[in-house]
């Protein structure tokens, strides 16, 4: 998974993916401390993530391994909201 911060929301009335009520969020990839990289992608939100929260995003075929996205034209899903990250026994990120 990659780490990212929720940077915004994307609204689209014309959407060929037919996931009713699908919430598409703009993700700004970040490092384990939460430093953003200004490298963006769009992911379907499965966990009701909020603005600025750090999340884990699963991409490619794995993105279709959820009941909501099975056999759907989706290549990125938010699979979790990060609470804390520790690195070398030191907490480097805390929600």
């Amino acid at each position: 998974m990659v780490l990212g911060k929720i940077a915004g929301t994307i609204t689209s009335s014309v959407n060929g993916t037919d996931i009713p009520g699908g919430r598409y969020l703009l993700i700004n990839k970040c490092d384990q401390q939460g430093q953003i990289k200004n490298d963006f992608l769009i992911a379907l939100d499965l966990v009701s993530a909020g603005i600025d929260e750090m999340v884990m995003v699963s991409q490619s075929t794995a993105a279709r391994e959820t009941p909501t996205t099975q056999n759907k034209a989706i290549d990125a899903v938010i699979v979790g909201i990060v609470d804390t990250i520790d690195e070398n026994e030191k907490v480097v990120y805390k929600k």
Binding site: S60, T61, A73
Partner: peptide, 30 residues
């Protein structure tokens, strides 16, 4: 959508595509 997901849209099922436009964006809010 890119990769194998591109072949999962109704209009591209089973087609040899690895990139398919699946949405027209109306609003981006940041």
């Amino acid at each position: 959508v890119s990769g194998s997901g591109a072949r999962m849209a109704e209009t591209t099922l089973g087609l040899p595509t690895d990139a398919t436009v699946t949405a027209i964006v109306d609003v981006i809010e940041q």
